[in-house]
Amino acid sequence: MQAIKYCITTLSPLLLASNTGDPNMVSTLDYIPETCLRGMFANEYIKKRKLGENAHKDETFYRWFLK
């Protein structure tokens, strides 16, 4: 297995909530999950290609983000 290490600097503070055993408590993650990063890249791809609601019909978008 290969890994790529990288450093991300956010422009403003992030709050990434995670579930805990107690329904009255919320804990936060100390890392940015892969799903958040993938969503960020997918959103940028949609905006740059002006795909809008039809992004899922784009072959490259489907292969990179949905498959």
Rank of each mutant, 00 (worst) to 15 (best):
M1L: 09
M1N: 03
M1C: 02
Q2F: 07
Q2M: 06
A3M: 12
I4S: 04
K5I: 07
Y6T: 15
C7Q: 15
I8N: 06
T9I: 10
T9R: 10
T10Y: 07
T10R: 02
S12R: 14
P13K: 01
L15V: 11
L16M: 12
A17I: 09
A17T: 12
A17R: 13
S18N: 11
N19F: 10
N19L: 13
T20L: 01
G21H: 07
G21P: 02
D22T: 01
D22E: 11
D22A: 12
P23E: 11
P23Y: 09
N24K: 11
N24A: 11
N24Y: 04
M25K: 14
M25R: 13
V26R: 07
V26F: 10
S27Q: 05
T28I: 11
T28W: 06
T28H: 09
L29F: 00
L29G: 07
D30I: 03
D30G: 15
Y31M: 00
I32W: 08
I32G: 12
I32H: 14
E34N: 01
T35E: 12
T35V: 12
C36Y: 11
C36D: 05
C36L: 13
C36K: 04
L37A: 05
L37M: 10
R38S: 06
G39K: 05
M40Y: 14
F41N: 05
A42S: 13
A42G: 14
N43K: 13
N43I: 06
N43A: 13
E44L: 13
Y45D: 05
Y45N: 03
I46D: 09
I46E: 07
I46Y: 03
K47D: 06
R49Q: 13
L51S: 01
G52M: 01
E53K: 11
E53Y: 04
N54V: 07
A55Y: 01
A55S: 05
A55V: 03
K57Y: 10
K57R: 10
K57F: 01
K57A: 07
D58C: 07
D58M: 04
E59Y: 01
T60H: 04
F61D: 00
Y62T: 03
Y62M: 05
R63F: 09
W64N: 11
W64K: 12
W64C: 10
W64Y: 13
W64M: 14
F65W: 02
F65G: 06
L66S: 04
L66W: 00
L66Q: 06
L66M: 05
K67P: 04
